[in-house]
Design a protein around this nucleic acid. Structure first.
Lengths: 147, 147
DNA sequence: CCGATTAGTAGCAAATTGCAACCAATTTGA
DNA sequence: TCAAATTGGTTGCAATTTGCTACTAATCGG
């Protein structure tokens, strides 16, 4: 695996750096499936439908960038891919992508998978609020460069 | 612009549908810049560094999918691209991508842009909590198919 | 009216992706 | 216990996507 020699699309922007790492057609779907229990090459391939050589590449890159790790499976001698802390920390990204899709990419009544908590209760729509309780959105925030 | 004939990567998963719409190398950076005030073709090109023909394609697709709209600029007769409600609603996605990047894609002390509110105060890290106050993460949630 | 800027298009080369076949090692099951 | 199936890839090639460098037509500013 090529050592990390990333030259960032936009080195000062955290959004751009994150997208350099996971902003392709497949990486976030691999992360999604890892969050939902996928561990093996074949299982990732089956769930995503990704081409096998591309999957090889993505698993390698995600591992090289510290989002996945390879370890020996408990039951025997096979290897498996598991999320690292950094990989698990993408949960808010996956959740917000999910909730946007539910709101804007499905017709009313069209069926789709949902995210539920331990009790099987559907996860509520998250509302972003700032320290003072005001909602966070494009009107109430802006980017300050290179703080 | 080809009429909408999307065949989804995974039609039942809202995450996958969202990524089908914005999960390429550039779309979310265009959205990011639109949120931060970019309106014109040239301005998007300058901020992202995207190739001009690809930018043409992405602006067209985002417009076709209802994330951007073209309207006549206030000051004259030129056209400009503005976010629709659906486009603005990607704010939580951009914010969570930003915060993940801040946590995992920068060395400690390395400078980067930050998001601030109206008072110039830095937006705090968002913490996802469920209805009962328990934190939402990969351990406390799971996907239920085709609810 | 002239030069600069805007908003693209066109052509082509390079890089990425996807498909299908192949392969070695491991696991399963009769 | 031995054959068949499964796993986890790799390889080669074709198709698609991307990026670069012109080029153009319309507009804007002075």
């Amino acid at each position: 695996m090529a050592a990390r020699a990333l030259d960032w699309t936009d080195a000062t922007c955290p959004v751009a750096r994150t997208l350099d790492l996971v902003g392709d057609r497949w990486s976030l779907l691999v992360i999604r499936d890892a969050m939902d229990g996928a561990r093996s090459f074949t299982e990732f391939q089956r769930r995503t439908g990704i081409a096998r050589n591309i999957l090889t590449d993505r698993l390698g890159k995600l591992t090289a960038h510290g989002l996945l790790a390879q370890r020996t499976a408990a039951s025997g001698r096979r290897q498996e891919y598991v999320l690292t802390d950094a990989g698990r920390d993408l949960f808010p990204v996956i959740l917000t992508l999910r909730q946007w899709g539910e709101r804007h990419a499905f017709a009313p009544g069209e069926p789709h998978s949902t995210l539920v908590d331990q009790h099987g209760i559907q996860v509520p729509e998250i509302a972003l609020t700032g320290a003072d309780g005001t909602p966070l959105n494009t009107d109430t925030t802006h980017v300050r460069k290179t703080a």
